[in-house]
């Protein structure tokens, strides 16, 4: 226990000088506890806001698997289908397991999808559970997240987006465990992977 504390302290101290003059938002703003594993998405920093207007750091998602999709709320055709698929994945879990999973929807249209717009969207789709988060981030961080996940989105002249439709599974460390590439692949595959990544015991609180 002491070792972990010391390690954490050392990490914090080493991070300090970098924090002092850092203009790049590309590293975790504070390193409490262990560093993320090498391929964890939680190296990605940034000030994110949930649809409940709460600040969020991605690394706070550590400890439970995450089902993540990117969309935008003004999307008429495909995004509702993506959302339905994510809901279907949740329904595919035993009810006890649902609380052990986080469902994160990130908008790649942060200009229009403010936290309150996201809140309306969540409500419209009947999503109230606390394990769901609709995230708003700066366009810089949203584009980084998209690039790291291979999610492509491109605005067209009308202000709509052409985009890809992946649903990503992150394991408890925040590493990409699986990616469903499109809407065609049966949901059973990502669901099986999710079940295999559920934490075995209750995740410790941060």
């Amino acid at each position: 226990m002491k070792k972990i504390f010391l390690l954490g302290l050392v990490c914090l101290l080493t991070a300090m000088p970098a924090l002092a003059e850092d203009h790049s938002h590309h590293h975790p703003t504070s390193l409490q506890g262990e560093k993320p594993t090498g391929k964890s998405l939680y190296w990605l920093g940034g000030q994110w806001k949930t649809h409940q207007n709460q600040k969020l750091e991605l690394k706070s998602l550590k400890g439970k698997p995450v089902v993540l999709a990117m969309l935008y709320t003004s999307c008429k055709a495909v995004c509702p289908l993506i959302l339905e698929d994510v809901k279907a994945i949740e329904k595919g879990l035993a009810s006890a397991d649902r609380a052990k999973t986080q469902f994160v929807i990130v908008s790649f249209d942060p200009e229009r999808d403010t936290p309150s717009v996201l809140a309306d969207y969540a409500q419209k789709h009947g999503i109230r559970a606390s394990n769901w988060k609709f995230l708003h981030g700066t366009s810089k961080h949203v584009s980084e997240l998209g690039a790291l996940l291979g999610v492509r989105f491109q605005p067209n002249a009308q202000g709509d987006f052409i985009h890809s439709n992946q649903i990503t599974l992150l394991n408890v460390e925040g590493e990409v465990a699986y990616q469903r590439p499109d809407l065609k692949e049966p949901l059973t595959i990502i669901l099986e992977k999710l079940k295999a990544n559920l934490p075995v015991s209750h995740p410790h609180q941060h």
């Binding site: 289908l81 698929d85 059973t188």
Partner: peptide
Amino acid sequence: MRKHIHSKIFGSLL
């Protein structure tokens, strides 16, 4: 239609 297919997949699982 899609919703039904999805519930169908999970239906057949459970």
